[in-house]
Amino acid sequence: MDRNQLRRQVALTKQSLFDQGLLDEQFIQLEDLQDDANPNFVEEVVSLHYRDSARLISNIEKALEKNPLDFKMLDGYMHQFKGSSSSIGAKKVKAECTLFREYCKAGNGEGSMRTFQQIKKEYATLKRKLETYFQLAKQAGPADTACRPK
């Protein structure tokens, strides 16, 4: 009973991530890829993404300190970041990335910086929420395997 409740909570948590527009269907695809050979595939991918994108974020931060701004470079970094975000289905982050790149193309430094702050915020929010979700999911145990109470 307890476990069922947990499962329900896991499902609700996940659903809320979609409802808030934080995730898109790529996340579901990741879940579909998870199998016996890689039982923690989704979590591994997500943590890999966050590890790798931290580097990109700091690249962008440094590039934003330059004066004048090198929009081409910023756009390149953001392209990479956006690509990486698309890998885990970070929908909202991706949308902000698109906006950022538009500002870059328009040569709008202020807009770029503002958007970048927003990106970092969304990026962190999603990270936190996904961590919570994985935590819960672990507690609930694998969805369909027989889980005998210890």
């Binding site: 890829l33 595939f41 991918v45 890999l48 994108s53 990486s84 890998s87 885990i88």
Partner: peptide
């Protein structure tokens, strides 16, 4: 791909 995350995903796929 220079993006390790995508490499991992694509490999799996």
């Amino acid at each position: 791909d220079d993006d390790p995350t995508w490499l991992k995903i694509l490999e799996k796929m």
